[in-house]
Design a protein around this nucleic acid. Structure first.
Lengths: 157, 157
DNA sequence: GTAAACTCGTCAACGTGGTTGTCGAAACAG
DNA sequence: CTGTTTCGACAACCACGTTGACGAGTTTAC
């Protein structure tokens, strides 16, 4: 089926996906700012998700996020300066430095989860549970099944 | 309806939207690279869309994109260095410098439109026309009706 | 008509999030 | 014991964004 003239132009789809993503992220951070996390940035959430409650090393974070270990290290520096994580020496391996979430960092992760649930609930209010579930299931079908790194270095920066 | 335990966690929705967007953008640029535009970046597409076939000034581009005129000016510099746009003096206003797409730039815009149409058609193959249309219509209802700038400075950088 | 106010483009300094390359120290494989 | 690999750090660099300032040109008000 070649593109029928009444089809929306193809560039609207990425725009809508981006606008949807960005709307959620903006609302998340507006809400986080009201809950004791005014300096949190989107990248911080991704990085702390990659660190996880069990902790990780900078190299691991880099691999999970699909960026270099140096970039991950710099992000961890900023996270540490904001009090979200701390570095502790690994007694079993003197090279490694375990990055662990502080209580403040854990709080941000928990709050983010709650806020995202509330935001999704608001979409359900406006669209109905079925359409939201359908949207998620459609996207799950078309996005490659990898974890979140899709591996185009510097795709947006 | 408070979040039922069988609902997907709220953070999956933004992840899926982002993954969908990024998948499309990555495929667009992989394809553009094969069609004579190996140096194009996502930001370039947005900026050239904001310039438009009629041309615009750097300040206008900044306003349309929701960034400062200085940032827009720097992006135009890079676009000009890549041969996508040129600056011409406005005879009616000696302050203004009209930014116009070169044939090369126009070609990129046209190719992008075609590629996006093909990518959307691939989604239609996998999901069916109805589900894609439903996805678009759902997103249209939940994203604020503004143009693309949602106005959080530095939301991702 | 002139003075004030605004707008345009540019320069400079800086922050953030990436990249590559290098390096010493530590761990590991042979 | 000797290579090889891995870890974290350092440096230099690039892309993209921000403020603040500034001269030149255009509008607006008086």
């Amino acid at each position: 089926m070649p593109p029928a003239p009444e089809d929306p132009p193809g560039f609207e789809l990425p725009l809508l996906l981006f606008a949807g993503f960005r709307t959620l992220i903006d609302e998340l951070h507006a809400e986080l700012a009201r809950c004791g996390h005014p300096d949190a940035r989107p990248v911080h959430g991704f990085a702390m998700q990659a660190i996880g409650p069990a902790g990780a090393t900078a190299s691991e974070v880099g691999r999970r996020l699909g960026v270099s270990k140096q970039a991950a290290g710099k992000t961890v520096d900023r996270l540490a300066a904001l009090g979200y994580v701390e570095r502790v020496d690994d007694p079993h391996d003197a090279r490694r430095k375990l990055i662990r979430l502080t209580p403040h960092g854990l709080d941000m992760l928990n709050q983010s989860a709650e806020i995202f649930d509330r935001l999704r609930a608001r979409w359900v209010e406006r669209l109905g549970a079925e359409r939201v579930a359908s949207l998620e299931s459609s996207l799950r079908t078309v996005v490659p099944a990898t974890g979140f790194p899709v591996d185009v270095p510097g795709w947006f920066g």
